[in-house]
Simulated assay, not measured.
Amino acid sequence: PDSLPKSLLVIGSGAIGIEFASFYSALGVDVTVVEVQNRILPVEDEEISKLAHVAFVKQGLTIHTGATVEQLRNTAHGVSARLRTANGIATEIAVERVIMAVGITGNVEGLGLEEQGVRIDRGHIVVDEWCRAGAPGLYAIGDVVGPPWLAHKAMREGVLCVEKITGVEGVRPLNPANVPGCTYCTPQIASLGLTERAARESAHELRIGRYPYAANGKAIALGETEGLVKTIFDAKTGALLGAHMIGAEVTELIQGFAIGKTLETTEAELMATIFPHPTLSEMMHESVLDAFGRALHV
């Protein structure tokens, strides 16, 4: 289309759905988001999801969680959608456009992959730690091998795959726990490693730190006081298990935690690290300190 729609329905509230929803809402489009799970951004930490939900509603988005789209019907003016909300009530909404953002499936049909011994699982090629796809000389990387569906994850897979093929020494398999995830919406969202729920389910004793944007001088100067940096540590070993952030420029900040986690850092090294002032990155330091009862600027 050569013009913006007045209204838009986004089905699915993962990173892709939320990015489109946030983008179009910022341009003045009336956006409705429908998510079958009981919260938006279901792979993110629950605390971050709740903060994002509040921020998006404040911006004017209409969000239905625990809801399904039962029917889409073309009309003379766009699309009529029948929704089933969380309380079981059916309702009809009319929108000009619909974006289906419920996941990614590999384009693997009709290629004869199964005949070569390649296994397909829910639309994705199954590979080993070196991206070998189960047939001699056949490798697969990126979205076609499954989540996380991220460009930087695909790039790393491509590098390690080729290095393994060419015999480069010291090649390491990709560790999904060290892949940062970024959602480019407003406010930005970034995460790494285990969520709080996943960490607790892994029987870890946890130390959790939080630091709000509202307490950071640089955030105040920028007028970006909505946000949070959350860090999760193993209480016994001090290992960084996860980091979860929402707010201005967190997609840039998360790499600091990614480096630390890749180097298997503990809370001791992070607390001893000098963070420059005044910066947003100071919130990362304060969150780590807070996890161990040592926050300085609260």
Rank of each mutant, 00 (worst) to 15 (best):
G142E: 03
D143T: 06
G146K: 06
P148I: 07
L150W: 00
L150Q: 00
A151M: 00
K153N: 04
K153Y: 03
K153H: 04
A154Q: 01
A154L: 02
R156G: 08
R156Q: 13
E157F: 03
E157N: 02
E157T: 02
G158D: 07
V159Q: 05
L160P: 01
E163P: 00
K164G: 04
I165Q: 01
I165R: 02
T166F: 05
T166V: 14
T166Q: 06
E169T: 14
G170Y: 06
G170M: 12
P173K: 03
N175M: 05
P176G: 05
P176S: 05
A177N: 11
P180D: 00
G181A: 08
C182H: 02
T183L: 04
T183C: 06
Y184G: 07
Y184A: 06
C185R: 02
T186G: 00
P187L: 07
Q188K: 00
I189R: 05
I189A: 05
G193W: 02
T195G: 06
T195K: 07
A198W: 04
A198Y: 05
A199D: 10
R200C: 09
E201S: 14
E201T: 14
A203S: 15
H204T: 03
L206E: 09
L206N: 09
I208R: 12
G209D: 10
Y211V: 10
Y211R: 14
Y213L: 07
Y213W: 11
A214E: 15
K218A: 10
K218W: 07
I220N: 14
I220P: 09
G223M: 07
E224K: 13
T225N: 04
G227C: 01
K230M: 12
K230W: 10
T231I: 14
T231V: 15
D234K: 11
T237L: 08
A239V: 05
A239K: 15
L240V: 00
G242L: 10
H244T: 13
M245N: 12
M245C: 12
G247K: 06
A248Y: 15
A248P: 00
E249S: 11
E249M: 13
L253M: 15
I254C: 03
